[in-house]
Simulated scan of single mutants.
Amino acid sequence: MSGRLRNRAAAVAAPERADPASPVVSLRGASLAYGDLVLWRDMDLDVRPGEFLAVLGPNGSGKTSLLRVLLGRQQPTAGSVTVLGTSPHNGSGQIGYVPQHKALTTPTPLRARDLVRLGLDGHRWGPPRRTAAARHRVEELLAMVGATPYADVPLGRLSGGELQCVRVAQALATDPRLLLCDEPLLSLDLRHQQTVTALVDRRRRSAGTAVIFVTHEINPVLGLADRVLYLARGRHRTGPPDEVMTSAALSQLYGTHVDVVRVRDRIVVVGAPDDGPGHHHEGGGTPPPNGGPSA
């Protein structure tokens, strides 16, 4: 291999890390609306390397839509958005994405290792890389998330927690600088919730990867989140969990009285109008109906 090709390959394998002082994500005066429906407006937000930002809010508040904007799949209605120093665009290997858990309804021959391999090659044009280095990287990722024992099991036979662990491995395949997680804990039991959150947290601490973690409940990530971005009724509030998850802050967002109750190490939000009379939920946001995605 020539020196030029060797240098190029090294650059692809190990992208240059950003200045810790520079934000990985930056929004200025950003708004998103569908006609007269405003999801959020005038958002100023910087997310820096190694930061864990939890995004909370009821259904339809624009949580998933925010990730779509950062992925370049949707344009903001107003304002500016930069990701890794440039306008968002599809296909960046420096962004990892962990989707909501959804049960597979049709049989597939894809195995766990095949899904991880797609994380290496899915953002590239052309055939997959049939190299020893790529095979080694897949094995390394499978071991990292504890998926080696079921590496050759078809995806349809994996439990929800096992599948989410494999999806985390897929998202980390290209050594991303930004990890976007869209309700990855949905429908998982407590043990697998803890496994997935621990994997994500370990990644951001060891590699300085910024994490934006959409969730309808803050309790599974309460000890991990540096800040919370709470979306509700076209408004938003950003700050440390102890500042945002308060009765005063959420009442201001919702425009009506909301109680935030702390029970031991858990947070319960009571009286948010989106929940309906007498309903309460933990950590912010009505759980999606039938396990479906929220906006």
Rank of each mutant, 00 (worst) to 15 (best):
V81D: 01
W125I: 14
V81N: 00
Y97D: 00
S87E: 14
P99S: 03
L110P: 08
L84R: 01
S80V: 02
L118D: 15
A78C: 06
T86F: 02
R124E: 12
L115I: 13
R129T: 11
T131I: 10
G85A: 07
L118M: 15
V138M: 08
G126D: 12
R117D: 15
T86P: 01
Y97R: 02
R113G: 01
N90P: 05
V138C: 11
G96M: 10
H89Q: 14
V116T: 09
G91N: 05
A134N: 04
G85K: 10
R130H: 13
G93Q: 11
R129H: 12
R111N: 04
S87T: 14
L142K: 06
W125D: 12
G85S: 01
H89D: 09
S80I: 04
H123S: 05
W125K: 13
A103N: 00
D121W: 10
T131W: 07
W125F: 14
G91C: 02
L120V: 12
P109S: 11
S92F: 03
G96S: 10
R117L: 15
P127V: 03
V138I: 14
V81E: 00
R117W: 13
I95S: 08
P99W: 06
A134L: 09
G79V: 03
T86S: 15
V83Y: 04
H89S: 15
M144Q: 11
H89L: 04
P128S: 05
H136M: 02
V83P: 04
A78I: 05
K102Q: 15
G122I: 02
N90I: 12
G91I: 03
V81I: 13
R137D: 07
H136N: 12
H89Y: 08
T108D: 14
R129I: 07
P107N: 01
H123R: 13
H89A: 13
S87K: 10
G126P: 09
G79W: 01
